[in-house]
Simulated scan of single mutants.
Amino acid sequence: MRIWHGGDLDEARRLFPQAPEPWIDLSTGINPIAYPVPLLPASLFERLPSPADHRDLEAAAREAYGANDAAMVVAAPGTQVLISLIPHLRSRSRVAILGPTYAEHAYAWRNAGHDVDEVPSPDRLDSANVAVVVNPNNPDGRLLDRETLLRLAEHLRPQGGWLVVDEAFADFDAGECLVPVLPANAVVLRSFGKTYGLAGLRIGFAVAPEPIAARLRSALGPWAVSGPALEAGRKALRDREWLEATRADRTVDARRLDALLSSVSDATLRGTILYRLLESSSAGRLFRALGEHGIWVRRFQYSPHLLRFGLPRDEAEWRRLEAVLTRFSLS
């Protein structure tokens, strides 16, 4: 079964061939205001990246995420690669995934031959050899506190179990991040592209105890991250002033989006700063109304009543979205 993802404007144009261009893509949960990438020297495109530059990117990530040692940080060409790779580091295991959540986790573990159970409650995670939690959760923003995760890791440890925590959207909702207190049997995934609006660079990180980190590095091989991505990534990760200002700006945007969506939602809006989840019995009609006006939002295979909205990029996009929502709420 094909897993639906955000950002597929080819599918949007197939479904709504008469929609006006340009499309507004609100389907991804990626920061719409990207970090200003500095002018990169041509040499970064002409030579293989150096091991020193790779290590410096991991050092920048250690500083940004609060890891105890840069040796625990593994840079990869996107978090998705790590999601697919980690299941191959274990023999066949019982895997519990707190869901519903990002579908690639279950797919990756099943594809690697593990027995996977998607569970609706944290209380059912401790019966497995591996527990997988997306925190904050995609798409509803559910957040498990740090103490709950630490207790779960401790429960799994005597049997050689792992806790895998995907913190892809944690940069702007960072209160319960596990990295600074990482247990010896936990792996945390962090995304770069979502926060910094640079998904095309394909940078992601695993933060893990050194034995697991070493196995991940070996599996990724040399030159896992391109030279231009290394340079842009380490500059962005060290720009704390930009991150704090952007967190404040996107928080204002999320509140503005809530105000717009409240008129068409049947329930309290959920999510994170970078996306909001709407639940409505009219979600199917709203999806079509938006699509016909060139606005693409995220729908879900497991529920026809949910739509996820990312943040508009500029005032023109805000006005287009508001016009469609106002028209729909009056219909």
Rank of each mutant, 00 (worst) to 15 (best):
A96T: 09
A96D: 10
A96C: 13
A96E: 05
I97N: 06
I97L: 10
L98Q: 00
L98A: 01
L98F: 04
L98R: 01
L98C: 02
L98V: 01
G99K: 08
P100H: 15
P100G: 07
P100V: 10
P100Q: 14
P100F: 14
P100R: 13
T101Q: 02
T101V: 04
Y102W: 07
Y102P: 00
Y102M: 10
Y102F: 11
Y102K: 06
A103C: 02
A103E: 09
A103Q: 07
A103T: 02
A103S: 10
E104W: 06
E104A: 14
E104K: 09
E104L: 06
E104P: 04
H105I: 00
H105S: 01
H105Q: 02
A106W: 03
A106H: 05
A106I: 05
A106C: 06
A106Y: 05
Y107P: 00
Y107G: 01
Y107C: 03
A108T: 04
A108F: 04
A108S: 15
A108W: 03
A108I: 07
W109V: 00
W109C: 00
W109P: 01
W109Y: 14
R110N: 13
R110D: 14
N111S: 11
N111Y: 14
N111V: 09
A112T: 12
A112D: 12
A112S: 08
A112W: 14
G113E: 10
G113D: 10
G113C: 09
G113L: 11
G113Q: 11
G113S: 15
G113A: 12
G113N: 11
H114S: 14
H114A: 12
H114Y: 07
D115C: 06
D115E: 15
D115P: 01
D115H: 15
D115N: 10
V116K: 10
V116D: 12
V116E: 13
V116W: 12
V116A: 14
D117G: 06
D117P: 05
D117M: 15
D117V: 11
E118W: 04
E118V: 13
E118C: 10
E118D: 10
V119I: 12
V119L: 07
P120Q: 08
P120V: 07
P120T: 05
S121W: 04
S121A: 08
S121D: 13
P122V: 02
P122W: 02
D123K: 08
D123H: 12
D123S: 11
R124V: 04
R124E: 12
R124Y: 15
R124L: 08
L125S: 04
L125Y: 03
L125I: 02
L125A: 03
L125H: 03
L125D: 03
L125G: 03
L125T: 02
L125P: 06
D126M: 11
D126R: 10
D126I: 11
D126K: 13
D126A: 09
D126S: 14
